[in-house]
Design a protein around this nucleic acid. Structure first.
Lengths: 244, 244
DNA sequence: GAAATAGTGTCTTTAAGACAGTATGGC
DNA sequence: GCCATACTGTCTTAAAGACACTATTTC
């Protein structure tokens, strides 16, 4: 070892294929709220392995297209949904010898939040079908690889962060009403919330502002709000007391 | 594509070396509190690339030894410190084309918390030196690869979780006093805390119990406590109001 | 005016911050 | 008894929960 005098010499002789390398992918848990339900995007796999099984969308890093990991995730999301500006967050990285029949495999799991109105589902070459699936139903399916586990991790991360952050805003359109936002929280947490404290929480935080418009509806119109800074996630000083 | 009729046929012809694969490593940010300072373990690299530079300990997945990613992290920690039961948590996974001269490289970053009394630093084949370095000093060094960035991420994750969890308990021995625990929080957060609320927080949470022993000292001895469940991290309902 | 939904007033509860006071050990 | 440090009492403050109340729109 280290028969090299300089880093340049070392690099000239280095070949990654001399080593055992794990299979390496990015998988996405893409969430939206649609028909008063939290839903996740699933694809039916078009190729081996696990051909014809439902799975989370994902795939390999493209070393020529992706300058970094986040770009891989953005690309996957765009390929399936056409959405360009989601909320995106890493959940975890799972690796092991048993999770993929091809060998030691590692996947970087992301979750994305998008307003479902923005999406136009695309069946690309790698999938036979692409569909929104209500989360409880998705969990009851037998997904490919360890994707049931990945989905569970993502759902738990989402639920726990919803208790103390402004994340669900990213499931709505750019302008939204407070009653709709509260409803979105309630759907994700599966529990009713107090109107008064919910409104106070957001209004005191100074993270939203009135647009001046109102949402017309069947009764009294609600004020429309937008985020003051659409890239910032607000962390509240206390968690909601939510039942499970 | 898909000239295969069965998954078995597909797998028989699959060879990972037919594809562009990223370099894949695990890096560790190992924290302890020693001499009233938050310190991190650094190693001076013994091999190319970045030979002779200080870096976070880390290395490749060993497909024969490591059944999953966490085992790689545990193994790395054991190799450097001899510690077998740390608190271990994934921070993030960073990947990109520019971070390693060998090519597109991905690293799974973990942080570990250990009581420094347990450690026996080991200079193994891969490093010339291994040392605890106070965090501020470590950040001022020019570390190998993007390890300054990895260190910053880990430090921020630690600081933010210390505000609402019981994490720092894992920096202490199995039995500890509340004044020492408070001191540990204050060192990490770099701010004094209120004694009364700090004690109430822990005692009301029901996560620690008296051992019946006392810590002898220069004045009134403090009661010794231990964790009721040493594997559980407690999440408090509110964050501490800490200045930066 | 009735129905429906948006939004407010106000009281309670919980847990943190501030800070002064008491307790208990070594010497 | 004195010092140092551990521990407690008690008041204040911030933000959530409960829930009844008022406001504004469509019909």
């Amino acid at each position: 070892m280290d028969t090299f005098d300089t880093e340049k010499e070392f690099l000239a002789s280095y070949n990654i294929h001399d080593f055992d390398v794990p299979l390496c992918t990015v998988d996405m848990c893409i969430f939206t709220v649609k028909d008063e339900q939290l839903q996740v995007l699933l694809t039916k796999r078009g190729h081996f392995p696990k051909k014809n099984q439902w799975a989370l969308p994902g795939g390999f890093i493209d070393q020529s297209k992706d300058k970094n990991l986040d770009e891989t995730a953005f690309r996957k999301l765009r390929e399936k949904t056409g959405v360009a500006s989601p909320y995106l967050e890493q959940v975890a990285t799972i690796g092991g010898s048993k999770r993929d029949p091809r060998g030691w495999a590692l996947t970087v799991l992301y979750f994305a939040l998008i307003p479902h109105e923005d999406t136009e589902l695309k069946v690309d070459a790698s999938s036979l079908e692409v569909s929104w699936v209500p989360i409880d139903h998705a969990m009851s399916l037998k997904l490919a690889f360890d994707h049931n586990e990945l989905l569970k991790l993502s759902k738990e991360r989402l639920r726990s962060k919803v208790l103390y952050t402004s994340l669900p805003v990213h499931l709505l359109n750019e302008t939204f009403t407070l009653p709709l936002l509260q409803k979105t929280y309630e759907i994700i947490l599966n529990t009713p919330l107090q109107k008064k404290s919910f409104r106070k929480r957001f209004l005191d935080a100074g993270i939203i502002e009135e647009t001046g418009e109102k949402e017309p509806g069947v009764s009294k119109p609600a004020l429309l709000y937008r985020l003051v800074d659409s890239n910032k996630v607000h962390v509240f000083p206390r968690t909601l007391e939510s039942a499970t």
